[in-house]
């Protein structure tokens, strides 16, 4: 399991152990804190506690966000970021799941490829952007590649350790039914690893958006990352913050969608 999927789980566990506020109340508390912080922001700007052109009242930011929506520009930027993130994510998922399963099950390939993967993994993704620009240019190919590279590792690692953790009894059961290797991988190993794969996919879900934005900030001509840098140069903090707001909402929505899909795809998670 990765560290990223813990937040919701921790909250659930606590609530079941203690007799605390129920679901609705809990959510209300969270939003209350959010409202207090936002009011504090609004106040700090309007009352002049922080005097800065880069600290507009939060109400201005919301107004800017709505105006952006009307212009359509922000949605286009968001769409192009999401497109890159999605392509990279899907490529990383296929590669990560296939390699994770194959390497965990095949000793020769494992000995051959694992050292390479272990060397590349600790490299911070942004560090490889400048050298990669030389080969892939500054267009989509670069950004999609970077997204795929960053998303690959959590998916691969979770799949790999997930396969290794399958109980031998399960594999031997399939073997005594004379299951072919291909069928064993597709019908036993893959589904048995799905909970671990889902954990990796979830980590990659938030990561792919982060990296897509980052790559657009470094080498961009479109997308939310580029928009952020552009509005910063243009001294339009209200537009900049509003874009961040949209990004946060997108990240939140992606995670919710993922959780809903996970609950449908892996209903036995944590049950066996």
């Amino acid at each position: 399991m990765s560290a990223m999927d813990g937040l919701a789980g921790v909250r659930e566990k606590r609530s079941s152990r203690r007799s605390g506020p129920n679901g609705m109340d809990r959510r209300a508390y969270g939003f209350l804190l959010l409202a207090v912080l936002l009011s504090f922001w609004e106040l700090s700007s309007r009352a002049g506690w922080i005097v800065s052109a880069y600290w507009p009242p939060v109400s201005h930011i919301f107004a800017a966000a709505i105006a952006q929506l009307a212009g359509g520009e922000i949605l286009l930027a968001l769409a192009s970021t999401l497109r890159r993130a999605a392509i990279g994510y899907i490529a990383a998922s296929v590669a990560g799941i296939v390699l994770g399963i194959v390497l965990a099950r095949n000793r020769v390939l494992r000995y051959g490829l694992l050292p390479l993967i272990e060397i590349v993994r600790p490299m911070p993704t942004p560090a490889v952007i400048p050298p990669l620009i030389l080969f892939l240019g500054v267009d989509d190919a670069l950004k999609i590649f970077i997204v795929a590279l960053a998303s690959f590792f959590p998916i691969f690692s979770n799949t790999f350790t997930g396969v290794a953790a399958i109980d031998d009894t399960l594999i031997q059961t399939a073997r005594t039914f004379r299951t072919s290797t291909v069928r064993l991988l597709a019908r036993v190993v893959f589904p048995a690893t799905l909970p671990a794969i889902a954990a990796g996919l979830r980590t990659a879900t938030s990561l792919c958006l982060v990296v897509a934005v980052l790559s657009e900030m470094i080498a961009g001509s479109s997308g939310i990352g580029y928009y952020l840098v552009e509005t910063q140069y243009a001294m339009r903090p209200d537009l900049m913050y509003a874009a961040v707001l949209y990004l946060a909402a997108t990240g939140y929505a992606l995670n919710r969608i993922f959780l809903a899909l996970e609950a449908r795809m892996v209903p036995w998670m944590g049950r066996s």
């Binding site: 009894t169 031997q172 066996s272």
Partner: peptide
């Protein structure tokens, strides 16, 4: 197997 729980396919 003795460990029936580990021998059954949980996703099926």
């Amino acid at each position: 197997f003795q460990q029936y729980a580990k021998s059954l396919f949980a996703w099926r």
